[in-house]
Structure formats: structure tokens, C-alpha cells
Amino acid sequence: MRILTIIKRVPDTAANIRILEDGSGIDKTNLNYVTNPYDEYALETALRLKEAKGGQLEVLAVSDNQDILRNALAVGADKAYMVEYADYDKLDPYNLSRIYAEVIKQKGPYDLILTGKVTIDDNSYAIGGYLAAFLGLNYVSHIVSAALEGDELVVEKETDRGSETLSISMPAILTHERGKYEPRLPNLRGIMQAKRKPLDVLKLEDLGITVTPAYEIVKLTPPPKKEGGRILESVDELVEVLKNEIKVI
């Protein structure tokens, strides 16, 4: 089985974010980056499938930096692709998906593609659906686990309807919700091995892609400021607040 996991670098979830004065972006000095948490779950599921069934696991990112790909190789991926792009965090999801789709066309075919349901920085849920449309793949989003039962790929989802168990035929693309199991961390042996695993750097020109922006971020504005409010002395006071200030009772 050939599996591809698409991952992205995002600011650390614990980071304090400062918006630049002119609203043109966020202040990136001293910002730590991590792998998008949902991509880590996607990678964990991919590793489990590979361990169960055998095969090759590849990882792909558009980035200016190889860290997260090396990490993925260290936990067990076999090969990595990095599409070099300095402004990768400004790419809109439409163009990102076009780039991924082109890499998949050139390096594939894959039986299964996995990625996070959302990247926590741009908060766009768009990659999985775009790729399914661009590549004509079967598709399901927001999964919490996937496993092979014989040749059948069985996935679980938690939705507004309840817990769903679905079966999907490959080739398919799945996007991952927070998983049912925790992603593994790299160990020293894995990190050493990762250094010898192939990491191909690709350029947009070589892929034959030009980017015409599909959206433009005009500005960033801060969320409404919360001042830190009033400490109430009693439950009676809280009831008064609900009555007279928030006016819900």
C-alpha cells in the first residue's frame, strides 16, 4: 500500500500571537513552530496502517524549512517531499491544493492520502475536499480513526449525528479530526535513521505551476479585547448579573 500524508508547519499552540501594527500579518520573531496537531494524528493513523499492511509512507509539505518533514521521517515515514515556497503561509487553500495535486499526479499514484481536517493557523478546512475534486478521489473528512479489515478500509467519525462507522474504497483521501490515540514521538534511533532517508526538494517551476492568488488577506485585526472582569462575592450576585446585566432571566 502506498500512503501519502500532507503536513504543515504552524505556530506553536501555546504561542502568544502579536499582530503587526499595520495589520499585515503576525509578528514572527521568536515564534516557535510545530507540526499542525491534526496532521500529527493523520500521520499516526498512516503509520498504523503501514505497520498493519506493509507498504510505503511518504510525507509532503509546502514550506521553507525541513524540520517537520525530518520529524515525520523520524517517527517512521519512508520518504519526504518539500515544495520550496518562502511565503507558504500566505498561500490560499485553492492554490495550495493545486500544488499538492500536481505533486500527487507526478509522484503518485497513492492508495491513500491523509491530512489534518484543518490547519490551526489559517483555520481553513479546505485541502481534503479540494484534492478529492481535483484528483477524483473518494473522500471523507473529520475521521477519528482508520483501520483495514481485510481489504476494506473502515473509518470512524464523530459528528453532529453521533459516532459513525463508514467504509471507503481506495484510492481515497481522508482528513483527520483529533484521533482516538496519541501520536508517537520520535526516539533517538528514529532521528538518526531519518538523516539517511530521502527528502526531495521540489520547485514550483519544476512542477509547472504558477500561482494566481484566489484570495488576499486584506488585514488582520485583534479579537475583541476582554478586560478581565468583575469578581463576584456571592451566587446571589451572579443571579443578579444574569437578570439585570446579561438579561437572560
Binding site: Y125, A126, G128, A214
Partner: peptide, 24 residues
Amino acid sequence: SSTVVGREIAPLVAGLVDAISVEE
């Protein structure tokens, strides 16, 4: 609407009709 179903379908529709898709 940006529910689980909505976020699943939105980008797929966008890909099929060559649209930009923005969720949430």
C-alpha cells in the same frame, strides 16, 4: 453552514466548480 457536513462538502463543491472556498 460551517458544521461537520458543511465543512466536508464546501471545498469539494469549490473544487468541482473552480471556486475559492472559505470556512468558519
